[in-house]
């Protein structure tokens, strides 16, 4: 049993994610190149951050037609845990594995800084080591993180508690909702309706070691790895 970290041309957080999973969490991890068409029987998939295909056309648009994507789609449809971080979130939205779209930031800038998020639902396979309402701090680094969807989709996401993280500013326990990039309802991360696919814009991979300033992202990797490695083996091999 292992976790796949998928590398697209232009992914640049793939090695960071392998490092966190392998060396900090201790989960066996394999790198899968986007040209492959199978996932080697892994039990978790991580789509990392970066600039797949140079963000040409739209961030994540070209990655969604990569050879590896049908296998990721089959894996997600069968209930396998799929975590998308930053560009990974954009790719999962483009591929239709998560609802909504990530548009250009409202202020047109590439925003690279630390940001706070409130945990809005700790009852998921990704957030069970965090607590409800906890404020976590990690870096954001994107130009297209402005989450949008039609009003019905937003209402459904809110009603089903699929909004997992919301930006808050400043970073403190009683902070109000913040909005660095223009996202509807300050949305920073969501899950699909089955709860097995999570997409988030900020980087837990850049907040998993004390030496780089925060370990708030580590519980997410730990929970993801546990969900992947302890899961009942999926019926099909991907």
């Amino acid at each position: 049993m292992s976790i796949a970290v998928v590398t697209f041309p232009g992914s640049n957080c793939d090695r960071d994610c392998v490092h966190v999973l392998q060396n900090i969490v201790g989960a066996p991890t394999v790198q899968v190149f986007h040209k492959e068409t199978g996932l080697h029987g892994v039990s978790g998939v991580l789509v990392p951050g970066g600039f797949s295909y140079g963000d040409y056309l739209r961030a994540g648009a070209l990655a969604k037609v990569s050879p590896i994507m049908p296998a990721i789609r089959r894996f997600a449809d069968a209930g396998g845990p799929v975590l998308g971080i930053c560009n990974g979130f954009q790719i999962l939205c483009e591929a239709g594995l998560l609802p909504g779209a990530l548009m250009l930031n409202r202020n047109l800038r590439f925003i690279s800084r630390w940001v706070g998020m409130r945990v809005e639902n700790c009852d998921t396979i990704y957030t069970r080591h965090l607590w409800q309402g906890q404020i976590v701090r990690m870096p954001m680094a994107h130009a297209e993180g402005n989450f949008t969807a039609d009003p019905e989709t937003i209402a459904a996401l809110e009603a089903n508690q699929q909004v997992i993280f919301r930006y808050v500013e400043p970073v403190r326990a009683d902070a109000p909702d913040g909005n660095p990039n223009g996202s509807i309802n300050s949305i920073a991360g969501i899950v699909n309706d089955a709860g097995n696919v999570l997409g988030m814009m900020p980087h837990p991979d850049r907040a998993s070691e004390e030496i780089i300033g925060s370990t708030d992202g580590l519980p997410i990797f730990r929970a993801f790895a546990e969900a992947a490695l302890n899961s009942v083996r999926l019926e099909h091999s991907f």
């Binding site: 056309l57 969604k64 037609v65 779209a101 969807a149």
Partner: peptide
């Protein structure tokens, strides 16, 4: 439909 336009936006 498949690639050039994202029908959501």
């Amino acid at each position: 439909d498949k690639l050039l336009a994202n029908p959501i936006i």
